[in-house]
Design a protein around this nucleic acid. Structure first.
Lengths: 207, 207
DNA sequence: ATGGCGCCTAAGTATTTACTTAGGGCATGT
DNA sequence: ACATGCCCTAAGTAAATACTTAGGCGCCAT
């Protein structure tokens, strides 16, 4: 069967589309341009042999990337109680940063299209992000020896993950503007802050 | 002179345009729709009495908002050595969060259009953001009694501001998905983390 | 060999959209 | 009174673009 060449070009189309979508936005990318970038004959409907519409192409691309992003929620499995809190935190930080780097394309697309693009862009990603936050919060409670409350864990997770996300997302959005800060310095500072938050008891405000 | 009504409608046009741009994106907002939203006659070129082109309208809108965003860089003037570090940090956190809330519209527009929109969207905002980071880093060095190094201050500023920005930007992008976390809990946690970072000496790695 | 299938060329359709032109009413300032 | 300038109605233009139709070439499995 000619399935192999079929699958290959299908993937090539998705590759080209995702690259262009993330760079110029969904509306800013024409079908013709995707065809040209994918090496198909420009001007003809080669794409419509594989996808019924432009939106279906986006959906397929996002879905393909989503399984990889889903791996982000496996943070907890990464460190099976290494004993040393600093070590675990360092691993977690580097892991999250690496994941964000790998999904830079998807993040750009998300940022530009999350509000007005097809719903899959928000629905699925919201689910993954939310799950990641919750698992991180649970892990925080565990590792702190149940010293922090639920609300505190939520706040710590929000700030902790948010800091890492910003460190990668903002330069990505603004065009590598402010990312001259060293990675190891960021990780080190982050670990220090999180360690402090996890080991210091905050007795007030347990509404 | 009829300047008053002129200025009023001009502002009304900008208001409507910015709202629609931030909600549906620049390309997703048609001139006709802006006119309708601004109360002008739909279908005609009333807008072109005030702006030469759609892009000029965006530029005018962003420039109008930019002066307000520029106020963000006045963090330092806000607290003139109140003595108590926690108090100053708390004020700073609440101030930044409030500013971000007030500029939610601009932030949404930025996120969706920063990469492929007109250059003013990146150029000017990059400048403001960068300046804010640098001033915050300088303040960190001051307030720590020059305990932290330049690189450490940069890292702390990146993480500190990034955490607050994420806490506001992500829910904004994903549609108020994950913002059930209480503000006071976030501020409290943030202050605790920053205080620790500013008062703890980290002797290693001063490359 | 034959039929199906993936990709090609080539032209076309319908819609949206930024922007223009032409003319008219209504206010204000001189 | 008159001109100027803002807004209106109404029609139109040129370009981009998602998507379609029709037919042809070559490769593969049956």
């Amino acid at each position: 069967m000619g399935d192999q060449s079929t699958v290959a070009t299908r993937d090539r189309i998705i590759d080209a589309a995702m690259e262009l979508f993330s760079e110029h936005g969904y509306r800013g990318t024409s079908i013709t341009r995707i065809e040209k970038a994918a090496g198909l004959s420009p001007g003809a409907g080669g794409i419509y042999h594989h996808f019924p519409s432009k939106e279906a192409l986006l959906t397929a691309g996002v879905e393909r990337q989503l399984s990889r992003l889903a791996a982000l929620r496996d943070i907890r499995r990464l460190f099976a109680n290494l004993g040393d809190l600093r070590t675990e935190l360092t691993i977690a930080a580097r892991y999250v940063l690496a994941e964000l780097d790998q999904e830079a394309q998807l993040l750009r697309l998300l940022a530009s299209e999350a509000r007005h693009g097809p719903k899959i862009l928000t629905d699925a990603v919201v689910q993954v992000v939310d799950l990641t936050y919750r698992e991180f919060a649970e892990w925080i409670i565990d590792r702190s020896g149940s010293v922090v409350s639920c609300e505190q864990a939520d706040a710590i997770a929000t700030i902790g993950l948010g800091a890492l996300i910003s460190a990668r997302l903002l330069p990505n959005l603004l065009g590598t503007a402010h990312s001259e800060v060293d990675d190891s310095a960021i990780v080190e500072t982050w670990v220090s802050a999180l360690e402090h938050l996890l080991t210091t008891v905050r007795p007030h405000v347990t509404a």
